[in-house]
């Protein structure tokens, strides 16, 4: 039997959830023995591959680029995991929702600059009006809250998924 194909992707998050994944330390090598990592921060693959068994998604959906990626991820993934509070609730990125992107961009790129005040574009992905959790955009199969979820929790979720079990996160997870 071929190994399960695992991907991780980082949308609008701070990378803390990926850091927590790395906090599995030596268990990381054990996991990499049991799966093929086909996409993510530690492997040099540019295009999201087809036929992925499990994708861990860090971060909220905040830009057009995030949106494009999450559709691509969903299309090619059997079990999609919302990893961390940003993916689950939009968390920190969602704090901007009451203010709106225009005011934020103005503050950062027109007011707080010394020279060349201008709004970046058109080569940068546009911000969406709202930063939204992953499940507001595509179907999510497993929710793993935490900011970030602990390495032990990520390990047990992966261990369950790799072994074909449905991970039970209720009761063992919390926000923050």
């Amino acid at each position: 039997m071929s190994k399960p194909r695992l991907a991780t992707i980082w949308l609008d998050g701070c990378s803390g959830c990926h850091m927590s994944l790395l906090d599995m330390d030596e268990r990381l090598f054990d996991i990499t023995e049991r799966v093929d990592i086909v996409y993510g921060a530690l492997v040099d693959v540019k295009e999201f591959p087809e036929d992925v068994d499990v994708t861990l998604v860090e971060g909220a959906i905040s830009s057009e680029d995030d949106l494009r990626k999450i559709y691509e991820v969903r299309r090619n993934t059997r079990v999609l995991v919302s990893l961390g509070d940003c993916a689950v609730t939009s968390n920190v990125p969602g704090m901007r929702n009451q203010i709106g992107p225009a005011a934020i961009l103005e503050r950062a790129y027109l007011e707080n600059v010394t020279i060349n005040p201008q709004l970046p574009g058109p080569m940068v992905p546009r911000l969406l009006a709202m930063s939204r959790p992953v499940h507001a955009v595509v179907k999510v199969d497993v929710f793993v809250p935490g900011c970030p979820p602990s390495a032990d929790l990520i390990h047990s979720v992966l261990d369950d998924l790799i072994s074909g079990r449905v991970p039970v996160t209720a009761g063992v997870t919390c926000f923050g």
């Binding site: 060349n116 970046p120 058109p122 080569m123």
Partner: peptide, 25 residues
């Protein structure tokens, strides 16, 4: 710090660039 460091925006990036003000950008 802001007597010495200036910030500028490039149209192709959300990342601002800083420069040492006395020498300019």
């Amino acid at each position: 710090y802001d007597e010495y460091l200036g910030e500028t925006v490039e149209p192709w990036s959300y990342l601002k660039s800083t420069y040492f003000k006395p020498l300019g950008y």
